[in-house]
Structures are given as C-alpha cells and as structure tokens.
Simulated assay, not measured.
Amino acid sequence: MATSEHPSKLLTFLESRKNLTGSACGVVGLALTFTGVAGAYWPVVVAGLYGAGALIAPPERPAPPDFPDPAARLDALRGDFAELRDYLAEVDVPPVAAARLTRLDELLAALLDPGWAAELLAQDPEALHALARAVRQDVPEAVDTFARTRWWTRIAPGQEQPDRHLERQLDLVHDELTTVAGALRETEARRQETHTRYLEERNP
C-alpha cells in the first residue's frame, strides 16, 4: 500500500506549480553559471533561485466538485417521478385520497414537463428542491405511512382513521407545489413586464 502511494505523491510534486516554477528559476541559475556570473557559488545560486521560484508560485487549487447541472437533475427527477407513479398505481387508497393524488400527479407532470417550466426550474434551485422533496419524500412517505397505519387500524379498530391524515398531507403538498407554480408564473410575468418597459423606453 505504502509503496504504491509514494510514486503517486512524487509524481504530484513533480507536476506541481511550485516545482515547475522553482525548476524554471533553477534553469535561470544554471544559465548564470554557464555565463560565469554565479562563479564558485553557483550551487547556492541555483538552489536559491529554485527556492524563490517555489515560494512565489501560486498555491495549488483543488478542482471543484463536478456536481450535475440543473438539466441533469431534472432528468433524474423525471425518472424518479415515473417510478413514483408506478408505486402509486399499486397502492390501494380511498376514493377521496385517490382524487387528490390524481390532482397532485397532474400538477407534478406539468411542472416536470420538458418545456418552458423546465427552463425556469433550471434557474430556480429552491423550486427544484421543492419538487424533488415532494417526489422523493413527501408523497411516497405519506402514502406508505397511510398503508401501514390502515393495516393496524383494521386489526385494532377504534382509532382515528388514517384517511384524513393522508388527505391533509396530500393537500399540503399540493398547496406547496401550487405556490411553486405561482412563483414561476410571476417570474415569467416580470420578464414580460421588463420587455414591455424596454420597448416603451426604446420608442418614447
């Protein structure tokens, strides 16, 4: 293990900015030696110039993380939405909750459609986060919790029916995503108003 790390560290040092800059300055020192300027102290001159070059070299800057761009995150979210749809198709929920799920499905499908909404979402990290949370956490957790709680209610009746909790949770998710859609609409409206003002100022 150690023997494989040493060559890697040595190669990293040889390719570093400090070594390259110091080596360039050291070459200058050799040139001074060949021209007779350095004299008998040429080793000190070469070493000094190398050290000075290494000191003035800019520090190494690690490469930033290569996170996926918004378009890639949207594509991944669409795939997760399709998986969520497959899951919901297998779950038995009461008619009222099923209607709320259908309404929520239509809203999510519209927001994730690869059209104008996707362009706005790619520029709004908070809206994209809200959609991802709804698809990957809020909706599946609400439905799964309902299914498990309903099972316990059947074998231990007398408790509060889980249907109302599910309906309320789906309403809250829908309200949040409706707010997201409204914010995206306002963004487009402001863009339109800005263009109108531009045309008015250009044509007084």
Rank of each mutant, 00 (worst) to 15 (best):
residue 15 E to V: 05
residue 94 P to N: 07
residue 191 R to T: 13
residue 40 A to N: 08
residue 124 D to C: 11
residue 51 G to I: 02
residue 68 P to I: 14
residue 54 A to T: 00
residue 46 V to G: 03
residue 7 P to M: 10
residue 163 D to L: 09
residue 13 F to A: 04
residue 42 W to V: 05
residue 46 V to F: 03
residue 28 V to N: 00
residue 19 N to D: 01
residue 59 P to G: 06
residue 158 G to M: 01
residue 53 G to A: 01
residue 57 A to V: 09
residue 169 Q to M: 14
residue 79 G to M: 11
residue 21 T to C: 04
residue 57 A to N: 05
residue 123 Q to A: 12
residue 95 P to H: 08
residue 160 E to F: 04
residue 196 T to R: 15
residue 70 P to L: 14
residue 97 A to I: 10
residue 134 A to K: 09
residue 132 A to S: 09
residue 96 V to D: 11
residue 59 P to H: 06
residue 79 G to W: 02
residue 93 V to F: 03
residue 68 P to F: 03
residue 147 A to L: 07
residue 196 T to D: 08
residue 11 L to A: 09
residue 29 G to D: 00
residue 200 E to D: 11
residue 129 H to Y: 07
residue 2 A to P: 08
residue 68 P to T: 13
residue 196 T to C: 08
residue 173 V to Q: 07
residue 160 E to P: 04
residue 9 K to Y: 01
residue 129 H to D: 12
residue 118 A to P: 07
residue 47 A to C: 01
residue 106 E to T: 14
residue 105 D to L: 04
residue 11 L to K: 14
residue 45 V to Q: 05
residue 180 V to M: 08
residue 204 P to M: 07
residue 53 G to Y: 02
residue 122 A to V: 14
residue 28 V to D: 02
residue 85 R to F: 02
residue 116 W to T: 15
residue 22 G to T: 02
residue 15 E to A: 05
residue 99 A to R: 15
residue 157 P to W: 03
residue 196 T to S: 10
residue 23 S to F: 03
residue 201 E to F: 06
residue 23 S to E: 02
residue 149 T to N: 12
residue 36 G to L: 05
residue 154 R to I: 05
residue 128 L to H: 06
residue 163 D to P: 08
residue 200 E to A: 13
residue 180 V to I: 12
residue 71 A to C: 04
residue 29 G to Q: 01
residue 126 E to L: 13
residue 178 T to C: 06
residue 111 L to P: 03
residue 120 L to P: 11
residue 145 T to S: 05
residue 24 A to P: 04
residue 3 T to W: 11
residue 99 A to I: 13
residue 160 E to H: 03
residue 34 F to V: 10
residue 62 P to E: 03
residue 142 A to F: 01
residue 131 L to D: 00
residue 163 D to H: 08
residue 197 R to C: 09
residue 167 E to K: 14
residue 11 L to W: 07
residue 130 A to F: 02
residue 70 P to S: 12
residue 153 T to D: 01
residue 73 R to I: 13
residue 28 V to H: 03
residue 197 R to K: 15
residue 152 W to T: 14
residue 43 P to A: 04
residue 107 L to C: 02
residue 170 L to K: 14
residue 176 E to V: 12
residue 182 G to I: 15
residue 198 Y to G: 15
residue 175 D to A: 13
residue 149 T to Y: 00
residue 111 L to N: 03
residue 108 L to I: 08
residue 53 G to C: 02
residue 196 T to Q: 13
residue 90 E to F: 00
residue 53 G to T: 04
residue 108 L to E: 00
residue 162 P to L: 10
residue 50 Y to N: 04
residue 63 A to P: 07
residue 130 A to C: 07
residue 45 V to A: 00
residue 186 E to M: 10
residue 118 A to I: 11
residue 15 E to H: 05
residue 159 Q to E: 03
residue 63 A to E: 08
residue 160 E to A: 06
residue 161 Q to E: 03
residue 107 L to D: 05
residue 42 W to G: 02
residue 199 L to V: 14
residue 80 D to E: 10
residue 146 F to H: 11
residue 194 T to H: 11
residue 65 P to S: 10
residue 65 P to V: 13
residue 156 A to W: 01
residue 9 K to L: 06
